[in-house]
């Protein structure tokens, strides 16, 4: 499984970014290879409109199986995410990346 978490930093101890569209970083963990990849999404702050769909497009390039975030994605972004077949888990907005991943593994996220 390849898992993407929306984060405010690039470490396991970084706090999650509760937002999907305007998330600062992608934290991508590949369970098979145990490798971590990150993407700096901070340029999104310059987009006046449509941050969600843009971030969703970017996410689709990473071909992840699971998305873990705080809440969202909203309308248009959700349409893109659904198309890619990615499973969405929310409610991890106030955790660290590590805690969010563990909560997901323990089936605690919706």
């Amino acid at each position: 499984m390849k898992i993407l978490l929306t984060a405010t930093g690039t470490e396991w101890d970084s706090k999650m970014d509760p937002r999907f569209g305007r998330t600062e970083f992608f934290f991508i963990y590949d369970e098979e290879t145990e490798k971590v990849e990150t993407y700096d999404n901070r340029a999104i702050a310059n987009e006046a409109h449509g941050a969600g769909p843009l971030t969703a497009q970017k996410m689709s390039e990473y071909k992840v199986d699971v998305l873990i975030t705080g809440n969202g994605p909203g309308g248009n972004a959700a349409a893109v995410v659904t198309q890619t077949g990615t499973k969405v888990f929310v409610g991890a907005g106030e955790m660290t990346v590590k805690e969010a991943y563990e909560a997901y593994k323990n089936g605690e996220l919706k």
């Binding site: 509760p18 937002r19 305007r22 969600g52 809440n71 969202g72 909203g74 907005g93």
Partner: peptide, 8 residues
């Protein structure tokens, strides 16, 4: 959308 994003 932006107001809601990240809200509790």
């Amino acid at each position: 959308v932006s107001s809601l994003s990240g809200a509790n």
